[in-house]
Every structure is written in structure tokens, then in C-alpha cells.
């Protein structure tokens, strides 16, 4: 078990700056996701922590010890790769045992550890098989078991579920959470899938363009995104951003009035689609509905508010026709206000 301190890590590939000074502290036993779109630098950061890539500047400390310059094997970590990287020429047993064999563990310890890891991941029936006979999900279990068998202080996972089909991904996600909670391993999990990050993480670090935009619990990051990017990236549908006029420190939305952290000019309202309610006629913020999609569990409305594109969610019991205008009541506690100039949000009102 170990905590990890990432201290101002920079990485350039030629003229391209992949990481522009990233700092992050991960507590012992914590599960932190690096979440961001492809090309944002999250995998590069993970590979630097692993020791598979060198950083241009900065420090990584695992358990208070700087590991920059150490070989991957001397960093006390294990890794799960996106395409599993389960060795095809070894049985599942030998795959899971690989790290222990490299540590020259005796057969009794290998057997004990392999059985323990295989038990956690439910792969005991396949121990004698070769990976090519297994499904993608089973191979991913082997990869996780191989990583856990060495009882690493730190577990690194690089998009471990993205090669699985949707249903299996959901199943593995739940299972991973259980297994990792039980193992208590400090975990860094790279993903571009915000639902995975939300569901699994203690904290999420949203990475964008070589920087960390926000670090917080899933609920914090979801409810109070630090920037417009975070709000737009997390959540489905993404957060709506509606520019509104401010008069005397107040914004008017239908019959409602909100005090905002600006005196005049304009401010951007960050509005989560599912936080609205249908207002009594003539009292809400008007939304022109272009398409209404009944999704079964809810009703998804796509259209515009104040001439700006918006998507909101109403209970499945509501009926709205395409082309209709509906009034919306906003929940003052769940609004985010952002600066129209730089897209940074104002601190949440106390």
C-alpha cells in the first residue's frame, strides 16, 4: 500500500507538450481516475508513473520515495493494459504467476497467491487453459488477477474495460469495484468513459490538453464542474451552458430570480438537464422543444433556451410534443455559474 505524489510532471514529444505540469496527490488505498478525451495526456501520465515513459521534468513519489529513474519493477506497482497483454503462450495459471515467478517466489507461495487472485476474479476453472480459448472478459480478469497476485502497492489500469462490449463492461465495472475494495490497493485508473470514472472512483482527475482541470469526488465534479470543459465532458447529456444577461447582480429566469456573482453584463448558467422541473404555464424559463424522445425511464428534450442549444430531462410521466414550448423551473441549489470570458466557474454559493 502506498500513497502517490505527482509533482509538476511535464512531458514533451518534440515540440508537442503532452503534459504541461501536472500535480496530483493520491492517498493510500484510494481509487483515482484520470478522465479525459483521447490525446489529453492521461495515458502518458500513467506510463510515466509506471516507468514505461520518461518525464521531461517533475517528480513522482510512491510511498514518499522518488521513483523517477527507477525501473518499472522497482516501483512496487502492477499494471493492467487496455488490450489485456495476457501472454498467449502461457496458461492462465502461468500468466497469473508471472510476476511472482519473476520475483523468484517459491512454488508454495506462487500457488497460494495464484489461487487467491484467481478466486477473487472467478477464473479458477480456466487456470489450465490458454488465453486464446477465453473471451475478452475472461482475459481481462486474467490480466487483473495477474496484477493483484503480486500484491502491488499501486495498481495502474489503462482503459481496462474499453475493449469489452457494453454489457460486459457494466458487469466487470461492478466486479472491479468489489475486488479492488477488498484488495485495498491504491489504484490509478485511466479512462475516457465518464460513467466508468463516476461509478468506480473515490476521486476523479479530469485531464484536458495536458493539464488537470479539476480533481474531486464524482459528485463534486458532476455538480460543480470547475470549468466549462469539465461540465461538458461529464454527464450524459452534458451540462447545458446558457449565456444570460445580468441586471443588478440578478439573473431572471421566468418567474425565478437568482443572485449571481456578477453585477452586470452577462454570465453563463451551467445547467444539468435533469435538475429542472416542468413549471406551471407562463412561470418557467422557456424552452423551445425541437425533439422529444421518450426513453422509458425518462423523457429527453432537445431544443433551445434563449436561442442557445439545450438538452433537458423530465420525468417519463410528462408528455411533450415536438415543437412545443415548455416552461422550466430551476433548482437554485444545483446551478453552476461560469465566467463568459474564460469558462471558469464561480465557487458554489455557501
Amino acid at each position: 500500500m502506498a500513497n502517490i505524489v505527482i509533482d509538476n510532471i511535464k512531458k514533451s514529444f518534440g515540440a508537442f507538450q503532452a503534459l504541461k505540469g501536472v500535480s496530483l496527490t493520491i492517498n493510500d488505498g484510494e481509487f483515482v481516475s484520470l478522465l479525459g478525451p483521447s490525446g489529453c495526456g492521461k495515458t502518458t501520465l500513467l506510463r510515466i508513473i509506471a516507468g514505461l515513459e520518461t518525464s521531461t521534468a517533475g517528480d513522482v513519489r510512491i510511498g514518499e520515495k522518488s521513483v523517477i529513474g527507477l525501473l518499472p519493477k522497482d516501483r512496487g506497482l502492477a499494471m493492467v493494459f487496455q488490450n489485456y497483454a495476457v501472454f498467449p503462450h502461457m496458461t492462465v495459471y502461468e500468466n497469473v504467476a508471472f510476476g511472482l515467478r519473476m520475483q523468484k517466489a517459491d512454488d508454495a507461495r506462487v500457488k497460494k497467491q495464484v489461487e487467491k487472485a484467481a478466486g477473487l476474479l472467478h477464473i479458477e476453472p480456466y487456470l489450465d487453459r490458454y488465453p486464446n480459448k477465453l473471451s475478452g472478459g475472461q482475459r481481462q480478469r486474467v490480466a487483473v488477477a495477474r496484477a493483484l497476485a503480486v500484491e502491488p502497492g499501486v495498481l495502474l489500469m489503462d482503459e481496462p474495460l474499453s475493449n469489452l462490449d457494453a454489457l460486459l463492461r457494466l458487469e466487470m465495472r461492478t466486479e472491479l469495484k468489489t475486488v479492488l475494495q477488498e484488495a485495498g490497493t491504491t489504484t490509478i485508473y485511466v479512462t475516457h468513459d465518464q460513467t466508468e470514472a463516476m461509478g468506480l472512483s473515490d476521486r476523479i482527475a479530469v485531464v484536458h490538453d495536458g493539464r488537470i482541470e479539476q480533481v474531486g469526488t464524482p459528485v463534486e465534479v458532476y455538480n460543480h464542474p470547475a470549468t466549462r470543459f469539465v461540465g461538458g465532458f461529464i454527464g450524459n447529456p452534458p451540462m447545458n451552458f446558457i449565456t444570460m444577461p445580468v441586471t443588478g447582480g440578478q439573473v431572471t429566469a421566468g418567474a425565478q430570480q437568482f443572485a449571481v456573482p456578477a453585477q452586470g453584463g452577462e454570465i453563463v448558467l451551467g445547467l444539468r438537464g435533469e435538475t429542472v422541473e416542468r413549471a406551471p404555464t407562463g412561470q418557467g424559463l422557456d424552452m423551445q422543444v425541437r425533439v422529444a424522445e421518450p426513453m422509458g425511464s425518462h423523457l429527453l428534450l432537445t431544443g433551445s433556451i434563449l436561442g442557445q442549444p439545450a438538452r433537458v430531462i423530465l420525468p417519463a410521466t410528462e408528455t411533450v410534443r415536438n415543437g412545443e414550448t415548455v416552461g422550466l423551473t430551476l433548482d437554485p441549489k444545483r446551478l453552476t455559474w461560469l465566467s463568459p470570458e474564460n469558462g471558469v466557474s464561480y465557487p458554489a454559493a455557501a
Partner: peptide, 23 residues
């Protein structure tokens, strides 16, 4: 041979020679 195989072996402590002979 995908490079992940060699990287995985490296992470789990295989020396360059072991990576060559075993992977």
C-alpha cells in the same frame, strides 16, 4: 508481437534477457 507484451513483462519484473527468451 504487440509491445504491450514486453511492457507487461517489464512491469512484472522481467529483465531484458528474460523478456527476450520468455516472451
Amino acid at each position: 508481437v504487440p509491445k504491450e507484451f514486453k511492457e507487461a513483462a517489464e512491469i512484472f519484473g522481467a529483465s531484458p534477457w528474460t523478456r527476450f527468451t520468455r516472451i
